[in-house]
Amino acid sequence: MSTSNSNSARMRTIFRSKTSKTLDRMEDPRETLDDSYDQQVKLLQQVRLAVADVATAKKRIELQGEEMGARYQRLGAQAAEALAQGREDLARAALERRAMLEGQVAQLQQQFTALDRQTAQLQDRERRLTDQVAAFRIEKETIKATYTASEAQVRANEAVSGISNTITDVGSSLDRARDRVAQMQARAAATDELLASGVLTDLTAAPDADIERQLAAVSAQAEIERQLQAMKGSSGQARGATERPGPDGWLSIGRAG
């Protein structure tokens, strides 16, 4: 029962680890920052469009107010001219229309004042939001650069770790190769000695090669004895046999004089 629980806990740990790694790969903070920046830029564009719309409405009211102001002045002039001509009725009608126009102008002035205040507020928000977006962009790029550098360092460290493991494996392979070479060299030297001593038979040698080697050894020994006797018989001859004048004297070593 405890073994089963231990296996289950191990599986849960492995699953959480794999899930965490998958989420890390899926959720790149650089992409998240870019998305947030794009959203803020879109909001800033909306605020700028609102400022433009309010400014347009304000300008329209301003033009309408100028037109109504011109009419107000014209009605006043018409009332004065009608009164001068003795047409009090026309003067009264012009003044009545001007009075009605005053009410309309008053309402227009209220709208213009409200739009002017709204425009100032939106412009202030647009400036603050522009500063915030600019500051966020700088911080975003800084964080992205830091993350990219850290990611590169992690890859480099992992690569170095992999190289270290590879070097360890290569070192082990070299040690095994050196051991095999040393063993093979020792075996070659041992077989050479066994062949020389006659314990092993050289299958590639000519027939009766062992007899020839023994005869060669006896002949060499006899030659040494002959030279020794000659040296004992005549010291001058011994000097003549051992001394070869000239720089090419070595060429005659081993040859019969």
Score class of each variant (00 low, 15 high):
residue 225 E to M: 07
residue 111 Q to E: 03
residue 123 Q to H: 01
residue 248 D to L: 14
residue 231 M to D: 14
residue 81 E to M: 11
residue 71 R to P: 02
residue 91 A to E: 02
residue 247 P to K: 10
residue 7 N to G: 07
residue 86 G to R: 10
residue 242 T to Q: 09
residue 29 P to F: 09
residue 175 D to T: 14
residue 224 I to K: 11
residue 184 M to A: 09
residue 9 A to L: 14
residue 164 S to A: 09
residue 209 A to V: 14
residue 142 T to N: 14
residue 77 A to I: 07
residue 13 T to G: 11
residue 148 T to H: 07
residue 233 G to K: 05
residue 22 T to I: 06
residue 168 T to A: 13
residue 244 R to I: 07
residue 216 A to S: 13
residue 110 Q to L: 15
residue 138 I to R: 00
residue 3 T to A: 08
residue 173 S to A: 15
residue 94 A to C: 02
residue 167 I to Y: 03
residue 142 T to K: 15
residue 246 G to Y: 10
residue 201 T to R: 14
residue 80 A to T: 12
residue 245 P to F: 08
residue 99 A to I: 08
residue 9 A to V: 14
residue 103 G to P: 03
residue 103 G to Y: 00
residue 92 R to M: 11
residue 59 K to S: 03
residue 81 E to Y: 12
residue 64 Q to C: 04
residue 74 R to F: 13
residue 204 T to K: 09
residue 240 G to Q: 04
residue 128 R to S: 07
residue 27 E to H: 03
residue 197 S to D: 08
residue 57 A to L: 01
residue 198 G to K: 12
residue 111 Q to L: 03
residue 100 M to N: 12
residue 215 L to Y: 07
residue 4 S to C: 10
residue 37 Y to A: 02
residue 233 G to A: 10
residue 134 A to W: 01
residue 138 I to M: 00
residue 54 V to L: 04
residue 253 I to P: 08
residue 143 I to K: 14
residue 13 T to L: 11
residue 86 G to V: 10
residue 149 A to K: 07
residue 165 N to W: 01
residue 88 E to C: 06
residue 100 M to E: 09
residue 223 E to C: 04
residue 159 A to P: 12
residue 112 F to C: 03
residue 50 A to G: 02
residue 228 L to G: 08
residue 228 L to H: 08
residue 229 Q to N: 09
residue 96 E to V: 02
residue 162 G to C: 01
